Amino acid sequence: MDHSFLSAFILLLLVLDPLGSLPIFISIMREVPKPRRTRMAAREVGIAFAVLFAFMFLGGSFLQVMHLSERSLEVAGGVILLIIAIRMIFGSAGESAYGIEPGREPFIFPLAVPLLAGPSAMATVLLLASRQPERIFDWIGALTAAMLVSGLTLLLADRIRKILGDSVVSAIEKLMGLVLTAIAVEMVLAGLKRYFIGGL
C-alpha cells in the first residue's frame, strides 16, 4: 500500500488521534496552571516527535537487526491500528484507547509516550520509511504537519471542548476510528497480498 504525502499525513493524524486525546489531556492537566500547561504540552509533543523521527530513520536498521520483513511489519501495523480503531469506536466517553489513567503530571509518560508516540504511530512511521525510503522527506513533512496539528489541538483542548461539546468530540473520534479501521484492514490485506504473491 503506497502512500502520497497527503495520505501519509491523514494516516498519521488518524493514528495520533488528537481529538481522542482531548479528554485525557484535559483530565491530566486540570490541576496544572495554564501558562505551565502550554509549555508542558509543547514539550510532550516535541518529545513524541523526536521519538517518531528517530524510529523513521532507524526503521530500516531495526528491521534488519530483528530479521523482520516489510510484509510482517505491514500486517502487524495493520493489526495494531485495527485494535486501536476498535477501541476508538466502542470505547466509552472519557476512556482512553491506550488505557491511560489520568491524574498525574506528565513527563514523557503518558502524553508523549504512548498517547502520541504509541505502538501504532511507531509502526506507521517504520512502515512508511521502509516501504518508500526514497520519499523520506515527504514522510518527515507529513509527520511534522501531523504533530503540529496534534500539538495545536492539545493546546486548544479547553476551547475545542467548549465550542464543540463532549458529544461532538466523541462522535468525531468514533468517525476517525471508522476511517482508521478501513486503513488498518487495507494494510493487512496489502501485506498478505505481498506475502502470497512475492513468497518468502
Score class of each variant (00 low, 15 high):
Glu44Pro: 01
Phe49Ile: 02
Ser170Asp: 14
Phe55Gln: 01
Ser150Arg: 13
Gly46Thr: 00
Val113Glu: 06
Gly78Cys: 03
Ala184His: 06
Leu175Tyr: 10
Ile83Ser: 11
Leu16Gly: 05
Thr38Gly: 03
Ser167Gly: 13
Ser61Val: 07
Leu82Phe: 12
Glu31Pro: 03
Phe109Ala: 13
Arg71Thr: 15
Val149Thr: 10
Ala145Trp: 00
Leu14Asn: 12
Pro133Ser: 09
Ser61Lys: 02
Ala121His: 01
Pro133Ala: 10
Ile28Asn: 08
Ser4Pro: 05
Asp17Tyr: 09
Leu68Asp: 01
Ile172Gly: 04
Arg194Tyr: 02
Lys162Pro: 08
Phe57Ser: 01
Ser170Ala: 13
Leu148Pro: 04
Val45His: 01
Leu180Lys: 08
Ser61Leu: 08
Ile28Arg: 03
Leu52Pro: 14
Val169Gly: 07
Leu16Cys: 04
Leu116Gln: 09
Ala117Asn: 13
Phe196Ala: 04
Gly103Ala: 01
Ala42Gly: 04
Gly20Pro: 15
Thr144Trp: 01
Ala76Asn: 02
Ile136Cys: 08
Leu14Asp: 11
Leu143Cys: 04
Arg71Ile: 14
Leu115Gln: 05
Phe9Thr: 12
Arg30His: 13
Ala190Arg: 01
Arg159Gly: 09
Ile84Ala: 08
Leu22Ser: 07
Gly165Pro: 01
Glu105Arg: 04
Phe137Met: 11
Val75Ala: 14
Val113His: 08
Met29Ala: 09
Pro18His: 06
Val149Ser: 11
Val75Leu: 11
Met29His: 09
Ala97Met: 12
Arg159Leu: 14
Met40Ala: 07
Val168Ile: 15
His67Thr: 15
Ala182Pro: 05
Arg36Leu: 10
Phe196Cys: 02
Met56Lys: 02
Arg36Trp: 07
Met147Gln: 03
Ser120Glu: 03
Glu101Lys: 12
Glu186Asp: 12
Ala85Ile: 05
Phe62Ile: 10
Val32Arg: 12
His3Leu: 14
Pro119His: 11
Leu52Phe: 15
Ala171Asn: 15
Leu58Arg: 03
Leu73Phe: 06
Lys174Val: 05
Phe53His: 11
Leu16Arg: 06
Ile10Val: 15
Ala54Ser: 05
Gln64Val: 02
Leu16Ala: 07
Val75Glu: 12
Leu154Gly: 04
Val149Phe: 10
Glu101His: 07
Leu63Glu: 03
Gly103His: 03
Pro114Asn: 09
Gly198Arg: 09
Ile10Ala: 11
Ile83Asn: 07
Ala146Asn: 00
Ala142Leu: 08
Arg30Val: 15
Pro106Gly: 10
Ile84His: 00
Ala190Tyr: 03
Pro133His: 07
Leu73Met: 06
Ala146Pro: 11
Leu127Lys: 07
